[in-house]
Amino acid sequence: MNDGREKTSGEDTLLTISDVERIFGGERRLFGGRAPAVHAVQSLSLSVRKGETLGVVGESGCGKSTLARLVVGLDDPTSGEIVFDGENLTDLARKDGNSLARKVQYVFQDPVASLNPRKTIRTILEAPLKHLTDLDKDGREKRLTELLQAVNLAPEFLERYPHEFSGGQAQRIGIARALAAGPELIVLDEPVSALDVSVQAQVLNLLDGLKKTFGLTYIFISHDLSVVESVCDRVAVMYFGRIAELGPARNVFGTPMHPYTDLLMRSAPAPGRHVLMAEDASAELPDPYNPPAGCAFAARCNRKTGACLDNLPAPDQAPGPDSGHIAACYHPLIEA
């Protein structure tokens, strides 16, 4: 199954995910048998290069957030290995969670819920500085000022409470908190979905600027294809816990190979687009407790053949015309 891994492992790879699996449930029951198990992420291999923005798109429940939590060490994989900068991330997290938190940080989907309602912004932003850096009091004060400046917030906001902020401002605070300890990789889990379009643009532009200033690497998770297209270098399209298509954003969105990517693109509304492709309502989503043996997308796919139902297509079943563009499909929309 490891053949899905790209051949980039040598040059400036920051994070390598190999054959990772996360199963929820499935524990032994008191009276024999096992609880039903859900495979949230299955044999997933992916690598993230230094300095890039990797987009992860997919519909609700496809395992995007589970993947994100695995990468920041909030959750452990059931099997497989995640290597960050040459070190096994799971071991690192187990040994010393803080050393991982220094390098990898997370920005949450719901900006207001990610801030403790009973703490001032100062307390919230000081926490990572206290626990993850060895700055003294003056150093921390200086860093706080820098952080606020970086995310474009006025210094007097420090003494306020989260409920006094709008969604956009709260998300800036969340970003400042992630930046505090000077991480290399930031996982952004739907960072703009809860924001208004005008504010969304502000935050996207801010993220772009910060990336350049601090030399960051992003994993950008979103269900909004147009947002992902506008900010990402490479994209992974997830379906049912696996990667359906992976490649440079230009290629994946320009010449999609996997029928699922194609469906997503044609369903997405855009200003000036009058007709949306609508799937038949009877198209069944696979049952997570009882996954199909073959391609999970088969029930919704109009290109399927017998082969699709019997065997799982490998992650790189269909290599694209451009290097690094692969799709897990027997009958891709374009052949190499």
Binding site: G168, S198, A201, Q202, E229, S230, P271
Partner: peptide, 21 residues
Amino acid sequence: LIECVPVLGEPERRLDAIDGR
């Protein structure tokens, strides 16, 4: 408001945010 929405198929488009609230 129209300018600040990213559009699929136009990744190069600069997102023009509206300042303030």
